Simulated scan of single mutants.
Amino acid sequence: MRTLEILERLIAFPTVSRDPNAPLMDYVAETLRAGGIEPVLVPNADGTKANLFASVGGPEGGVMLSGHTDVVPVDGQDWTRPPFELTRGEGRLYGRGTADMKGFVASAVAAMLRAAKADLASPLHLALSYDEELGCLGVHSLIDLLARGPARPAMCIVGEPTELRVATGHKGKTGMRATCRGAEAHSALAPTGLNALHLASDLMSTIRAEQDRIAAEGTRDGDYDVPYSTLHVGKLNGGVALNIVPNLAVMDFELRNLAQDVPEALLEPVHAAAGRLSAEARARFPDAGVEIEVFNTYPGLDTPGTAEVVRFVQSLTGANGTIKVAFGTEGGLFSEKLGLPTVVCGPGSMAQGHKPDEFVTEEQMARCDAMLDELILRLRAGL
């Protein structure tokens, strides 16, 4: 089966992270079985979502191709083409997920089918996950499976869009929620209450000051477009009516850290500010204060440029240099939890991801297929 035929089917599954991906995984599993490959499905608790793992050529060594099957929503975006239908024009393939990252998934599935007929000396593995767009949440059960067996790959290629350049690193991420509790009052008597939004604003001021300090004085890595760790407030909710002093505000913020930085150290001033604000608030209202919880975290990826996986994937693509990417991937988890040497390399550009009329070019897809054809040739000879 050709890559673009598979991609057309994959795009037709509206696997937004909030929705099931099981029908797509069933399709992939059936496609692999038709090619003589028996995949392992790892469902979530209610069976609406699943990870998938498959191998051709044996369990030990070889290369694992990794991708996620969920996509971001299209709500509120001004698409001029049907987002869940593959359409073509001017050498481009349009549809939600074409770049991020069903293009690579389609190429990887097609490569598995070709590999099944190739008499490999070293194996090819396929790992597909869910809920990556929510912070690499779904892949953990797949990592647990790999930690127990059934396979021990020698290296991994995460196929996020890099225009087929070899990326050796990305930042880690910590997603946090600050719950700020105040005391309500009539707004005409505002000083008699404690405004929870003001607590959130004071904490936000610390976050912004720390970001400024990191940008001016912090660790730098020139391989990134933004060469330092970043703190960012993305969401703030609070208040019921203008004439009520709000008693609750909830603020979501994140840290994206360089591998050289320790997240806990960067966040210490923020936690200190939360403690100070809480002590001041509780002096007036015992139930008031600020609590910070971590709701999502994953490590960065920092593969040495001299690693064998880097040299090997460069030889597949014909690339010389390496890059680092701003977005996160499951690659950091594979590296940290499994000790699996990993790079990121896939078709398309993240500049097209998450946007209306998302696309990957036919030229990028053809180059990805060629890269995986070369990989199969190498695996026939053995790593």
Rank of each mutant, 00 (worst) to 15 (best):
R276D: 14
S66G: 06
G328M: 02
E308N: 11
G193I: 04
E5C: 11
D26H: 06
Y27F: 15
V290T: 04
L340R: 02
D144E: 08
L189V: 12
V233Q: 03
E291P: 02
G91V: 11
E280K: 15
E217T: 09
G35I: 06
G318K: 10
H232C: 10
P269K: 14
P82Q: 11
R92F: 02
D287L: 13
S335C: 10
G289Q: 03
T168Q: 08
V109N: 02
S55Y: 05
A185P: 11
L377W: 06
P150S: 06
G300Q: 11
H232L: 10
T303K: 04
A127I: 00
H198T: 13
G169C: 08
P304C: 10
E308Q: 04
P299T: 06
T15S: 04
N51Q: 12
N296V: 07
R213A: 09
A54G: 04
P43N: 08
G348A: 01
L142C: 03
N247W: 01
T98Y: 04
F104W: 12
D46V: 12
R114C: 05
V40E: 15
G61R: 01
T174E: 10
T174R: 11
P304M: 12
D212K: 11
G95L: 10
H186S: 06
G89M: 08
L333S: 08
A50Q: 01
P227C: 08
V290R: 03
A50E: 03
A127C: 08
R2L: 03
A351T: 04
L10N: 05
M350K: 00
P347N: 02
F312P: 00
E85H: 14
Y94S: 14
V158Q: 06
R282V: 07
V240P: 05
F285W: 13
T219E: 14
H125F: 00
E8Q: 15
A34M: 08
E85A: 13
F53G: 04
E330S: 00
V139T: 00
D46H: 09
G328N: 00
G331D: 01
P82C: 12
P286E: 15
L338S: 01
D78L: 13
F53H: 02
L277K: 07
G135D: 05
Q260N: 05
C345F: 03
D202V: 08
E38T: 14
I323F: 01
K235T: 07
R81T: 07
T306E: 11
E217Y: 14
V166S: 05
A12S: 09
D75K: 15
L194Y: 13
P23W: 01
G239W: 08
Y228D: 10
E291W: 11
G67W: 00
P246N: 00
F327D: 00
A29S: 09
E254S: 07
R177G: 07
V360M: 01
E85Y: 09
S141M: 01
T98R: 02
V313R: 03
S141R: 02
T342P: 02
N51P: 10
T3V: 05
V56W: 03
E8N: 12
A99H: 09
A319D: 02
T179R: 13
F13D: 03
H198D: 08
A115L: 01
R92Y: 05
Q211L: 05
A106K: 13
C156S: 11
E163L: 15
G318N: 03
A54P: 00
T69C: 13
L189D: 14
D287R: 14
D19A: 15
S107A: 15
T174Q: 12
A115M: 00
E163C: 12
L126A: 02
G300N: 13
